[in-house]
């Protein structure tokens, strides 16, 4: 009796892209892109089995709780969702994670972090946005700071970063500020991405394309 299993791993998800092309556009090898597909399949079928990562699935992976609300996780999801259609497709997932690769260009990491902090997507990090992000962090943590203290910290940060003194941080000011404070982009590097093929060895049996190096 013939049986076609629709959940076969040979059936690619919507938005699937050729690993060879994704590898050519990112720091990943073809093998690593295939390994990331294993991870993508797991994440994208954790709640809704449609092969697309929904925000709840992203939050579930990050916090083990699909209902956890977090301003920054929301922002990262929105940046991964390049097409702005409410889901992360495989190509978007790989290209975005590529920025977090230890070998990714520093400029890309700096630019990604800027967009993360530019909450209202105006092309600038504004004082109110910065304060909003500090308040959001305090809300989710046990840190307690007085309003005066928060104001002083935001003022000091702006005084240091907003060198043009126009009340907002532009991309050039951000680059200069990061060069003085490299720790600001330490979250932009995920060491896990160097060992991705070790974490997901199951792809090896099915790999279709050899790495060029």
């Amino acid at each position: 009796m013939g049986c076609f299993c629709s959940t076969s791993k040979n059936v690619k998800t919507p938005g699937y892209e050729d690993p060879t092309i994704l590898a050519s556009e990112t720091p990943f090898t073809v093998s690593e892109v295939e390994a990331l597909y294993e991870l993508f399949l797991k994440l994208s079928n954790s709640i809704i089995e449609d092969g697309l990562i929904h925000k709840e699935e992203f939050q579930l992976a990050l916090f083990r709780n699909e209902n956890e609300k977090n301003l920054f996780a929301d922002r990262i999801f929105d940046l991964f969702d390049v097409k702005r259609n409410g889901v992360i497709e495989f190509g978007e997932f790989v290209r975005s994670l590529g920025v977090f690769h230890p070998n990714a260009a520093l400029e890309d990491k700096i630019a990604f972090a800027f967009r993360l902090y530019d909450l209202r997507q105006t092309g600038y990090i504004e004082r109110e946005e910065l304060k909003e992000m500090v308040l959001a962090l305090l809300h989710e943590s046990d840190l307690v700071l007085s309003d005066d203290m928060i104001e002083a910290i935001v003022d000091k940060t702006f005084k240091d970063a907003d060198t043009k003194d126009d009340g907002r941080i532009d991309q050039d000011e951000w680059k200069a500020f990061v060069s003085q404070h490299p720790s600001l982009i330490k979250n932009m590097t995920l060491p896990y991405l160097k060992d991705i093929t070790l974490a997901f060895p199951s792809f090896i049996a099915r790999t279709e394309v050899e790495d060029s190096e």
Partner: peptide, 27 residues
């Protein structure tokens, strides 16, 4: 406490939402 040496972006980076390592756990 020397809070005037604290950088707002460094404080923000403590957020759990910035830590993507959860994506790679339980694999």
């Amino acid at each position: 406490k020397p809070c005037n040496n604290l950088n707002a972006f460094d404080i923000i980076s403590f957020s759990s939402g910035f830590d993507l390592s959860g994506l790679f756990e339980d694999t």
